[in-house]
């Protein structure tokens, strides 16, 4: 394995920034790389009004008063202090699921296998929406916040709405993002909300991935709500009719409903 410094945003190899996801995955054998490309020199670390460089660590975002509450709180409640010092905004959006079957390298559908072990097995932390093919839950608090903010991403190749970064895995394409190999997220833009909030249910007070994370953003009379931890990708809420909980995670529907009610009330004008 070799480690190269990126000189521009054309990357040939596995990009690495904070390394909080790439290094454990490499060491666990879930990711293989001949070449690691350190992109810290080419991804912006600036925070300006309505624009955040993809290289900014979460620890800076959580205490930056320019940043909307929903995103600050999502960063504040994400991971652990050390991980927030290391992990970048862009990397956070691209983190893989915490599904234990996936992390333990079971031959599941996200690993190109033909079974979702969680559906029949232990799925108390898993998806309640869009879980028929793969019941993994997307763990990014930050992605839910940005989805609620209706943020736009600039990558090394294009601009796209945050929602366009993610796709549900299908039989013929198991990826959960639309990023091409070597494509880098460079920055994130959003319009300032009138009010916003992030609420998170987890199994301990800190340092846990969301059982349910609820991001609510109000602009004028419109409130947009996005959830973390409830679907294989960050989930833009369009009611609970489409929820299809599994036997052991139906409680997540109750938790999500309660938090959505609170979040919506909190941002109401």
């Amino acid at each position: 394995m070799e480690l190269r410094q990126a000189s521009d945003t054309t990357v040939d190899g596995v990009p690495i920034h904070g390394g909080t996801e790439v290094v454990p995955l490499l060491r666990a054998g879930l990711l293989r790389a001949e070449t690691l490309v350190d992109i810290r020199g080419v991804v912006s670390r600036g925070v300006a009004d309505g624009r955040i460089g993809a290289g900014v660590p979460l620890a800076e975002i959580e205490c930056d008063p320019q940043v909307p509450e929903v995103l600050r709180e999502a960063c504040r409640l994400a991971a652990s202090p050390q991980l927030r010092n290391m992990g970048s905004l862009g990397g956070n959006l691209l983190q893989a699921t915490r599904c234990w079957y996936w992390r333990l390298n079971w031959p599941c559908r996200l690993h190109d296998g033909d079974e979702c072990f969680a559906r029949e097995g232990e799925h108390r932390e898993h998806a309640i929406f869009a879980n028929d093919f793969c019941a993994s839950a997307h763990p990014s608090d930050v992605a839910a916040a940005l989805l609620a903010l209706d943020a736009t991403l600039t990558t090394s190749r294009r601009e796209l709405p945050l929602a366009g970064l993610y796709r549900l895995p299908t039989d013929d394409d198991r990826r959960t993002t639309t990023l091409d190999p070597g494509e880098l997220i460079l920055d994130v833009r959003y319009d300032k909300p009138d009010a916003s909030v992030y609420l998170k249910a987890m199994e301990r007070k800190r340092w846990a991935f969301p059982l349910v994370g609820v991001a609510a953003v109000r602009r004028g009379a419109t409130t947009r709500v996005a959830l973390a931890g409830v679907a294989p990708i960050p989930w833009l809420l369009d009611g609970f009719e489409s929820a299809a909980p599994l036997p052991r995670n139906a409680y997540k529907v109750d938790v999500a409903k309660a938090l959505v009610k609170r979040a919506t009330a909190a941002v109401a004008g």
């Binding site: 992390r103 232990e122 007070k205 800190r206 846990a208």
Partner: peptide, 25 residues
């Protein structure tokens, strides 16, 4: 500590999945 109900293989052997109390708890 959870195990897969069908195979009995363990699922929560890492400290992200097995949740010890933190100072905040």
């Amino acid at each position: 500590r959870l195990h897969d109900p069908a195979t009995g293989r363990l699922l929560t052997t890492t400290l992200d999945a097995y949740k010890l109390p933190t100072i905040a708890d």
